[in-house]
Design a protein around this nucleic acid. Structure first.
Lengths: 182, 182
DNA sequence: AGTATCATGTAAGACGTTACATGATTAC
DNA sequence: GTAATCATGTAACGTCTTACATGATACT
């Protein structure tokens, strides 16, 4: 259900094609929502068939931009005001962290260093995007909040990885043989 | 694929039944990984059939605890050391934030207040769990890092929600009629 | 005796990914 | 002219959720 809402949110902000949306899912929105092109295109057709978005005139290179309809906007508002957010998440970095005691401290540190670099790089990207917003546009004012959530999360993740590197440095080697379990 | 790894991670830490795992997914691990009982039970059967975990003696009330095998531990280590974490995420709170300009500021604030309360409540829960860890156990040492990641993320989310409430207070009402799009 | 919790499952359908396919335009 | 990028899709398969089903034990 929320893929529909993600598409409506993007198209409500400004008219976009499937291709535009796929680029957003690979970039800015990677920490918010994501979907593959093969899921996006059929869903856009369905949204158009349901009257929540409307195809604009075909652009260059077979480009098909969509704009939101009144009913689409109404649906988006209803979702926001009458339902609660689902807070369950899947975060592979933290999942791997829970299993980190099974590998050598050196390997655990390699993993944490990789995460640290990743989060730092993303952080720089988000800050650039945030500066490019036009705060006279209502959709960009909301995007400022969304990107700020990303910035703060990435800062937290980076400082966590730094802290964790220090902690893992104090772990003993896992060379002690386990009891026979296999 | 990662559900398998989540189950292996939990069972590697200590023997657990499907019921135990479901409780973790509803509690501590909600911000890490989650799955419904209907997905967990069949996956445990498959892991056992593949020799990565092994059923222990049946406990009270038809309880079936599993323990990890040598091959399961080897598989877990290989996953950690030879593959990279997938960083794509789905976060409904931030998704909704990007659409927040479509509703009245008062409604946006109600949403942010709800998020703030939610994150604060969860934070208290995680801190209690963190204090209950036994740092002589390797699995608990890794769990300390995992829970700390959660604590820092929740702190970041709560302080973001507070900041966002202040920003939204400066937004003008959305009563201005939009151009005819439907 | 009745309710809550413990404990495990099956079947159908919705959602998401991987593999494959096609053609137009732009840059070198 | 050839490679990269733009742009949209279909089919098969795997993952996840919803609805439904069952029975044992503990608490009041």
């Amino acid at each position: 259900m929320s893929l529909r809402m993600a598409l409506l949110t993007l198209i409500a902000g400004q008219p976009r094609s499937g291709y535009d949306i796929n680029r957003e899912f690979d970039g800015v929105l990677m920490f918010v929502w994501h979907a593959k092109p093969t899921q996006v295109y059929p869903e856009l057709k369905r949204l158009a068939a349901d009257g929540l978005i409307r195809e604009q005139d075909e652009g260059p290179r077979g480009r098909r931009p969509y704009e939101i309809t009144q009913e689409g906007l109404r649906t988006l508002r209803e979702w926001l005001t009458t339902t609660s957010a689902d807070h369950s998440q899947r975060n592979e970095t933290v999942l791997r962290t829970f299993a980190l005691w099974t590998v050598e401290p050196a390997e655990a540190q390699a993993f944490l260093r990789e995460e640290l670099e990743y989060h730092r790089a993303r952080l720089r990207g988000l800050r650039v995007l945030q500066k490019g917003l036009d705060l006279d546009r209502p959709a960009d004012r909301a995007a400022l909040l969304g990107l700020e959530a990303g910035v703060r999360r990435l800062e937290a993740a980076a400082s966590w990885a730094e802290w964790a590197l220090g902690v893992v440095a104090t772990w003993p080697s896992t060379t002690a043989p386990e009891q026979d379990t296999g």
